[in-house]
Amino acid sequence: MSTKYKIRDQEQLYFVSFAVVYWLDVFVRNEYKDVVLESLCFCQKNKGLEVYAWCIMTSHVHLIIGTNDKKMEDILRDFKSHTSTQLRKMIKDNQQESRREWLLWMMERAGNKNSNNNGFQFWQQDNHPIELWDNYMKEQKLDYLHDNPVVSGFVSKAEDYLYSSARDYCGEKGLLDIILIE
């Protein structure tokens, strides 16, 4: 019996979280967060991804997503594969990255421990999708996602965190086009 979380209904919204292996704080640099944003934007335009909310923390990403025509697990697989490759290259080539050797070593270590990989792993294996089947769950996950930077002490108000959709929900334009949850 599989213990993995599954996306069962492609027409529902899902709260999805995924983290860097060993919860490494990779997203302390904006250029790394921008790779995630660019990939989400690409998936919106080319793969049918619908983004309702998002937040990039230092070691993980939270999304509320849906899809209009493709399987969500396929979109997430492609997204994680692309960002993994791009971020590995960026870290490797970034002469300003003081933790470069250590980060690459940790990701190689994770990849060597996982038979699904070829000696390198950026993201943890699972996505933890949670189906948002009612308004209470949608509001709860939306609040959790947007409050994450506040709870972590990065900002005092959720809408002040640049790498989140919280500002979209306060009437300002954020970094990524989203569909507001009503």
Rank of each mutant, 00 (worst) to 15 (best):
residue 124 Q to I: 11
residue 167 R to P: 14
residue 124 Q to H: 11
residue 99 R to Q: 07
residue 134 D to M: 02
residue 48 G to Y: 02
residue 57 M to N: 10
residue 107 M to S: 10
residue 99 R to W: 07
residue 111 G to H: 03
residue 137 M to P: 12
residue 100 R to L: 04
residue 140 Q to W: 04
residue 95 Q to P: 13
residue 96 Q to K: 04
residue 86 Q to V: 14
residue 7 I to L: 05
residue 70 K to N: 15
residue 104 L to R: 06
residue 99 R to N: 13
residue 89 K to A: 13
residue 57 M to T: 10
residue 107 M to H: 06
residue 92 K to E: 14
residue 82 H to N: 15
residue 31 E to F: 14
residue 151 V to A: 04
residue 33 K to A: 14
residue 36 V to N: 06
residue 81 S to Y: 08
residue 109 R to Q: 12
residue 124 Q to C: 14
residue 182 E to Y: 12
residue 179 I to K: 11
residue 9 D to H: 12
residue 144 Y to K: 06
residue 99 R to D: 04
residue 155 V to F: 03
residue 40 L to S: 06
residue 26 V to P: 09
residue 51 V to C: 00
residue 155 V to P: 11
residue 86 Q to W: 14
residue 70 K to F: 05
residue 64 I to F: 00
residue 19 A to V: 07
residue 136 Y to N: 15
residue 145 L to I: 13
residue 38 E to V: 09
residue 108 E to F: 04
residue 39 S to H: 08
residue 13 L to D: 14
residue 101 E to I: 12
residue 67 T to R: 01
residue 72 M to K: 03
residue 71 K to V: 12
residue 170 C to E: 12
residue 31 E to A: 11
residue 86 Q to E: 15
residue 76 L to I: 14
residue 27 F to A: 03
residue 52 Y to V: 02
residue 55 C to Q: 07
residue 17 S to W: 12
residue 123 W to Q: 01
residue 35 V to H: 07
residue 23 W to R: 07
residue 65 I to V: 13
residue 171 G to N: 02
